[in-house]
């Protein structure tokens, strides 16, 4: 909820770690450094930093990213 009382819907990049192959290419293209690759956990996106620009969606060789509403 923003101050004016409107509900703000934030769009963020979401990753499907079942599809993800842990190649890390998205980490290198993210312009705001909001993607983290952990060998064990897979990819995490920092929703606070994400600008939903979609570069990771365009890049991902396996289509593991999508831009969705923030939970």
């Amino acid at each position: 909820m923003c101050r004016a009382g409107f509900k703000v819907i934030l769009m963020v990049s979401k990753v499907d770690n079942e599809k993800c192959l842990r190649c890390g290419g998205c980490v290198s293209v993210c312009p705001v450094d909001c993607i983290l690759l952990d060998e064990a956990k897979g990819i995490t996106v920092d929703a606070k930093k994400c600008t939903s620009c979609g570069v990771c969606v365009d890049f991902c060789p396996v289509g593991a990213f999508s831009i969705k509403k923030e939970d």
Binding site: C23, G24, G25, V27, S28, V29, P31, D33, L37, V55, D58, F59, C60, P61
Partner: peptide, 23 residues
């Protein structure tokens, strides 16, 4: 390719989207 260490060190090694191919 996912290098963050150079960036942490202070070098701008960010890839522009057009300069990175998807393999």
């Amino acid at each position: 390719v996912e290098s963050k260490i150079a960036r942490m060190a202070g070098l701008n090694t960010k890839n522009r989207a057009k300069d990175i191919d998807s393999g």
